[in-house]
Design a protein around this nucleic acid. Structure first.
Length: 562
RNA sequence: UGACCUAUGGUGUAACUGGCAACACGUCUGAUUUUGGUUCAGAAGAGUUCAGGUUCGACCCCUGAUAGGUCAACCA
């Protein structure tokens, strides 16, 4: 109990169970497992499970197996196996063993035979519809199958012939003989094996019967001697069956514990729904930067440690919850602020002519004010520069954070300039702004005594590199698309992608290496997209800077209002 | 009209297992700042779903409600 305080953060309920088990001497070391089905890409929810399973093992000096739950060959594929392994590695975890439920198909078959011999399982000839019909309802008991009392010999023979492919799909199943009147529907003679003449991505065509989840999972845990088998809440009713199998088989008693899955608002977190978004082209793929998949977040520029931190802060509990996306964004900013290189990029250019500046020079600007070791870079500065159009205000305001006629601002790392001429076209649009600079105001050696409120980012027109910027908004218009009326896809935010094909970047950006995280000054954090190539540089906006001022409708910038 | 799970500020998680509710995000002030970022200082915000009970004392134990969720796939 003393440890709790030293650790600074209290144990979650799973850790508490493990802590107690270890202290009670129930185990000398623990073994957990992360058991994805290879039928889709991993998402934030899986990240939470990964952090829990691997994290808890690390914390208590144990290990974690990676086990693919590949008992349904219809939806599974090696493509997913590879992506899952890549994602786990990227998140920073290493598994002790790589296993597959399909590694145990022989053993599982023997277990089934054992149950038959004990009179705990039988071959049923009923169709899926008939079984469903006889299952009863939650408030009504089910009926026994007319095949429930077949002899052991007959069951043994039939099951062997199922395995040998003598029966068509759907004609026979193996069922556990438990209790058709159980209040727990899972215990009403659940299916253990079904016939599927489907090619399996690992075992090929050698099997035509495949075990159901409930007959594979617990036994796989047991075979590997998993001590703590951690899964999500929807498996709570399965625990009785999990324990039943282990008890009847008399095998190593792994134990199942359940926690509430992680949810995040303004997105969906189920493989089925994510698959729809991909298939129906609402996004460009599993790794679309708007997706809550690990690959999507990686492409967007989230870091593995920020995701781990988020999972840690979101916590583990048994009540269903929806986490605020702002916590994830906080974790991302917290890290990126420390490690990202600062660069200047103008998204929506407005030409500024510094009328009294004649030469081309270089100014040195720090790469990262949060990190002295990041060094400086030379940025070309000249008579004609771009600033952000929204940084010029036609009607000046009291606290001038931006440039306006007759007002002054500092250009980051360079000089203070004062606007003294605004050039407009016939329609009255501002097309360029003329300023004068103050020669004694150079950054770092300013003796001008001029005080300005605002500092702007800028880029020398002559030296600017064109880059593409992709900005992302939340994928859904509502906090919880699952809770709304009708199809969740009706709530998709149609405006979640905003592309700026021609932004102007300082030249250093073209020389930076891929994989680097950037902060574009006053714009947010950015990460180079994999679509970049040759001369074309494309950057994804990872997350914006925290905004301390309010933008009113129509994009008008106003002073902060109460 | 069943069984099981859950209920703490806007959000998420705690409360040393019974000693007058803490932390983080978010929000709001103010200071600093060559990023309206960062950093720093501070504030507001729940009396723990409700009703009883046990107890000197209950977020915690008991009883009963209420609300939400899960379960009737040859999916996992």
């Amino acid at each position: 109990m003393e440890e709790r305080k030293e650790e600074g953060r209290s144990l979650n309920f799973i850790e508490e169970i493990i802590d107690n088990d270890l202290k009670a001497g129930k185990y000398t070391s623990i073994l957990t497992r992360f058991p994805p089905e290879p039928n889709g890409y991993l998402h934030m929810g899986h990240a939470s499970s990964i952090c829990l399973n691997f994290g808890v093992a690390q914390k208590f000096g144990g290990k974690t197996n990676l086990r693919f739950d590949d008992t349904n060959p219809e939806t599974e594929d090696t493509e997913y196996v590879e992506s899952i392994k890549e994602d786990i590695r990227w998140l920073g975890f290493t598994w002790a063993n790589e296993f597959y439920a399909s590694d145990y198909f022989d053993k599982l078959y023997e277990f089934a035979v054992q149950l038959i011999k004990q009179g705990d399982a039988y071959v049923d000839d009923l169709t899926a519809d008939e079984i469903a019909e006889q299952k009863g309802t939650p408030t009504e008991a089910g009926k026994n199958s007319s095949f429930r009392d077949r002899t052991v010999e007959e069951n043994l023979d039939l099951f062997a012939r199922m395995k040998n492919g003598e029966f068509e799909e759907g004609k026979k199943t193996l069922r556990a003989k438990i209790d058709m009147a159980s209040p727990n529907m899972l215990l009403r003679d659940p299916l253990l094996y079904r016939i599927k003449f489907v090619h399996h991505h690992r075992t090929g065509d050698i099997w035509c019967i495949y075990p159901m989840y409930d007959f594979a999972h617990g036994q796989s845990d047991s075979i590997e001697h998993i001590t703590h088998s951690i899964c999500t809440l929807e498996f709570v009713p399965h625990r009785a069956l999990y324990d039943w199998c282990i008890e009847k088989l008399g095998i190593y008693p792994s134990h199942q514990y359940e926690f509430a899955r992680l949810n995040v608002n303004y997105t969906v977190m189920s493989k089925r729904k994510l698959l729809q978004l991909v298939n129906e082209k609402h996004v460009t793929g599993w790794d679309d930067p708007r997706m809550p998949t690990i690959s999507g977040m990686r492409r967007r520029g989230f870091t593995a440690s920020a995701i781990r931190e988020f999972c840690d802060r979101a916590g583990i509990a048994r009540r269903e919850k929806i986490n605020d996306i702002s916590l994830l964004e906080f974790c991302v900013r917290e890290e990126l602020n420390k490690i990202s290189l600062r660069r200047m990029v103008v998204f929506d250019p407005l030409k500024v002519v510094i009328t009294n500046f004649k030469e081309d020079i270089f100014v040195d600007i720090e790469n990262n004010p949060e990190d002295e070791n990041a060094g400086m870079r030379s940025v070309p500065f000249s008579k004609e520069i771009y600033i952000e159009r929204e940084d010029f205000l036609e009607t000046p305001q009291k606290k001038a954070f931006r440039l306006a006629y007759g007002q002054s601002v500092r250009l980051k790392g360079a000089y203070i300039i004062t606007c003294n001429e605004v050039v407009k076209d016939i329609e009255g649009n501002v097309i360029e702004v003329h300023c004068t600079y103050h020669p004694d105001s150079k950054s770092g050696q300013d003796t001008s005594g001029i005080k300005v409120h605002g500092t702007l980012h800028w880029v020398s027109i002559l030296h600017a590199k064109q880059v593409e910027i992709r900005e992302y908004d939340r994928l859904f218009k509502v906090e919880n698309p699952n809770n709304e009326e009708g199809d969740f896809k009706e709530y998709i935010n149609d405006d979640s992608l905003h592309v700026i094909p021609n932004a102007y970047a300082e030249p250093a950006l073209a020389d930076d290496k891929a994989g680097e995280h950037f902060q574009f000054l006053r714009k947010g954090y950015f990460f180079m997209d994999k679509d970049s190539g040759g001369d074309q540089l494309i950057f994804n906006k990872t997350v914006g800077l925290k905004e301390g001022f309010v933008k009113k409708d129509g994009g008008l910038v106003t002073e902060k209002v109460k």
